[in-house]
Simulated assay, not measured.
Amino acid sequence: MSVDIADLVRTRTRHPEAIAEAAARRPRRPLLGASDRLMIVAADHPARGALGVGDRKFAMANRADLLERLCLALSRPGVDGVLATADILDDLLLLGALDHKVVMGSMNRGGLQGAAFELDDRFTGHRPEDIQRLGFDAGKLLLRIDYSDPGSLTTLEATARAVDAMAARRLPVFVEPFISRRDERGRLRNDLSADAVTRSIAIASGLGGSSAYTWLKVPVTDNPDDMARVMETSTLPAVLLGGDVGDTPDDQAGAYEKWRGALQLPTVRGLVVGRSLLYPADGDVAAAVDTAVGLL
Rank of each mutant, 00 (worst) to 15 (best):
T159V: 12
D247H: 08
L296T: 09
D244G: 13
D225N: 02
D55E: 13
G246S: 08
G125C: 03
D282Q: 07
A262L: 08
V79D: 03
Q264D: 14
L207W: 01
R229W: 08
S180G: 12
Q113W: 06
D149T: 04
D7N: 12
V53W: 14
D226C: 08
G110C: 09
D87G: 12
L72T: 15
R122I: 11
A253L: 03
D146N: 10
R63K: 14
L295A: 07
A288I: 00
V239H: 10
S200G: 02
S152H: 05
D191G: 08
D284W: 01
A59S: 11
P46K: 11
M39D: 01
Q252G: 02
R169V: 05
D247K: 13
M60N: 04
R169A: 13
A47K: 10
A165C: 03
L8N: 10
G81D: 05
R182Q: 05
A262R: 04
V103Q: 03
L70S: 09
L265Q: 02
M166I: 04
K258S: 09
A43E: 10
D146T: 03
A86R: 15
S106L: 07
L98T: 07
T154Y: 13
R48C: 12
Y256R: 14
L236R: 06
R76L: 15
E232M: 11
D36K: 14
A20H: 12
L143W: 01
R185S: 14
M166R: 04
V9D: 14
R189M: 14
V41A: 07
G270K: 11
G96W: 05
R10I: 02
S148R: 12
D120N: 12
M1N: 05
D4Y: 11
P266E: 04
L134H: 09
A84D: 10
R187G: 10
P46E: 10
